[in-house]
Design a protein around this nucleic acid. Structure first.
Lengths: 243, 243
DNA sequence: GTCTATACGCCGATAGAC
DNA sequence: GTCTATCGGCGTATAGAC
């Protein structure tokens, strides 16, 4: 009794366990780290961050529980590494597109439509050979986790980029009051995140019929909505007070 | 050593512990239930559902840990009771407004603007003498919790109502393809939830300057955005296939 | 440097005494 | 209706094997 070996369910690497070469040890370390990341990605998307236990992650990855603390410091550190790996490239893509747009239309500002497309398309399209639904959901799943967790994380991964896009939109829509534009940008982010998360409505609310839209169709549908919304006439209901 | 009595920190009721009257017991039960609800509301909003432990809730309420399972069955049951208490009235308000709109404009359909206002205003305005921010946040905080939790909850609290509003919008905008309208309604829900949650962007992203908008201003800002978005010309990029 | 085994203090849940 | 005791699972920390 008492043999606790319920790990290593999937495999324990292809080579023989005797290989003590330092290069082999190094590649094994990378392998462990990568296996943890892949298992964590799948489980975080499936069950959410709080809902996926480290024991489930390490069990699925076939590694020891403590390995995650050695490589990532904590469960939150693991999430951070996962986000750096996924939303980093998305945000880089967004920024490159924005800079290209601004260079192409200089000295005029690019259209709000083009800026919004640069913001939205990378978030929905990027897949890199993986199941696209999975990659997308990870980002959306993060919002709504306990606030003390999501706050610093959003600022770190998204703060500067969001402010940069708002500045671009301010130049595209100079007639719109600054505050109103900033709120509208928040509405865009909200709609995008809700779509990305795939969490609520949709299949749940209307049955599978609504889930049919392809990624490309979804981008166009969302863009049609937010372009009209952000370009709507100013409400200007608060021309008062602060002079 | 080993005396585990670290509960009862706050108090243990005002009366003497001998009072065996049945009426007193009953009112004490109601009091216990209500105290749990109030403490849970505050802590769920502050730390999120997963982040607030039952021990913290019962400790703040000054009741025993097991009481929550006696009265609500589980932590999830407690959340459910809390939502019934808060989003129930909101959804009832929404439905009454919609029915009044439809009655007033019959046999024609009410405008999409009016329907959207009936959907959004109750969610942002209702407060009932409490700190309004707190009441609003509870609803928004729920989304993004682990999907197995949020799925049935959304369907139960919101499914029928959401479908009813989509039907109304379909009558208000008959020229818009059904699928496109349903997606757009999802975008509205996403933007609304993002605002309600108060979780992300906003103060975090732009500093406190953006948090200044009053509830009434916020309703108008959001309505201006979603009215334009939902009424935008159809993209119609998928007139194909299913005939 | 990489990984394993083991332990600690919380958590939600439950059974049974009062 | 309330409380105590206790359960298995959780995230985390660390000592030591290789």
């Amino acid at each position: 009794m008492g043999v606790p070996a319920n790990q290593r369910a999937t495999d324990s690497s292809a080579g023989d366990p005797k290989a003590g070469d330092s290069k082999a040890a190094c590649s094994k370390a990378l392998d462990t780290k990568q296996r943890i990341l892949e298992a964590a990605e799948a489980l975080f998307v499936e069950r959410g961050f709080s809902g996926a236990s480290l024991r489930a992650v390490t069990g699925a990855a076939g590694v020891n529980l403590a390995a995650v603390h050695y490589h990532f410091g904590s469960k939150e550190g693991l999430l951070h590494a996962l986000l750096d790996q996924h939303v980093g490239p998305i945000n880089q893509d967004r920024l490159e597109r924005l800079l290209r747009l601004e260079a192409a239309s200089a000295p005029a500002a690019p259209s709000a439509e083009a800026v919004l497309r640069a913001f939205i398309e990378p978030a929905l399209m990027r897949e890199r050979g993986r199941d696209p639904q999975r990659v997308r959901s990870l980002l959306g799943r993060i919002y709504g986790e306990p606030p003390h967790l999501v706050g610093p994380l959003v600022e770190r991964e998204f703060g500067a980029l969001g402010r940069r896009f708002v500045e671009a939109l301010e130049r595209s829509l100079p007639q719109l009051p600054r505050d109103e534009l900033r709120w509208r940008f928040q509405f865009v982010v909200g709609a995008l995140l809700y779509v990305i998360s795939g969490n609520a409505g949709l299949a749940l609310q209307f049955g599978p019929e609504l889930g049919r839209a392809s990624t490309e169709e979804l981008v166009e549908l969302l863009l049609g909505f937010v372009e009209a919304g952000i370009g709507a006439p100013a409400r200007a209901s608060r021309a008062e007070g602060t002079e």
